[in-house]
Design a protein around this nucleic acid. Structure first.
Lengths: 149, 149
DNA sequence: GTAATTTAAGTTGTACACAATTTAATTTCA
DNA sequence: TGAAATTAAATTGTGTACAACTTAAATTAC
């Protein structure tokens, strides 16, 4: 492959990831709109729903590590979720630097309405379980490699 | 595999695409910063560099189709590239609705500085050419499927 | 031939992402 | 102990994305 060819858009993995992520978002948007959520808000809620089994709060820091997002993104996002009445934000009395996030009753109840979103999205991919798993593994390898460089 | 497990897998796919795209961007940013470009500006420049062989202008509309971006994104982005002296924006005299984008001399010269970026990014993936091609094909299939639903 | 429709850019408003900075609390350690 | 360093959130500023809308030009349909 010569230099000019490698500069071409079609050759680039990154452009496909970028396009696919935008496309994925466009499929999620109308579905999530019914719950009043954006995709980023949705993945925050997923973490909180998963965690609510143990009934413990999650710090903004911990959410950031889980989702690979910093406080510059999370702080305003969480304020919006609080405004919608889905979460509560409370300073940790043991460590006043930390803010603990908990689901409200309303936020907890929203989980039921989100239950069939993954199935809906899976059908959009048109993939088999095996192909999906294979792709997941490849992306996982790429994530690990690129995170450690 | 039961239904619940497959639903979880689908969540992982979307989240991995989302995380990987952010990660890609973080690897591109410091490299592109030397050229004074963001990733979005870079892919616009890629299209213009590719097209400049024929020395013809490209409309905003055409750029939008190529990159899957609307005028709401492109208009302000192109204004910034114009401000940097990399491109010119000119109303098409044959069709006054259309705005034609052309590289300036400076924009054309920038191509040389971008020549080894793809190779650099490829090395970050740690992938073989074959694996890369395989992944590209899978992503292409997904793009086609999700675009036609 | 002109009214209705379509098309291309641009504008406005919302919500990320993230770099850089600020503020306040906690920890380290000299 | 107390100054220096670290940590957690929040804030500020820039630049996407995109929905919804506006404006102006071109096309069509009658």
């Amino acid at each position: 492959m010569n230099n000019d060819e490698s500069l071409q858009l079609e050759n680039q993995l990154c452009f496909r990831l970028y396009s696919l992520t935008k496309l994925m978002n466009r499929h999620y948007s109308p579905v999530l709109k019914k719950l009043g959520l954006t995709y980023s808000q949705y993945i925050v809620m997923l973490v909180l729903w998963e965690n609510n089994n143990t009934n413990s709060a999650i710090s903004v820091k911990h959410l950031g590590v889980k989702l690979d997002l910093d406080s510059g993104t999370l702080s305003p996002l969480l304020k919006r979720l609080e405004k919608q009445g889905l979460i509560s934000r409370l300073r940790n009395s043991e460590d006043e630097r930390s803010v603990e996030i908990k689901l409200t009753r309303s936020g907890c109840q929203l989980k039921a309405q989100a239950q069939d979103i993954p199935a809906q999205m899976f059908s959009v991919t048109g993939m088999s379980i095996d192909d999906l798993q294979g792709l997941n593994n490849q992306l996982d390898n790429l994530l690990v490699t690129m995170n450690t460089k």
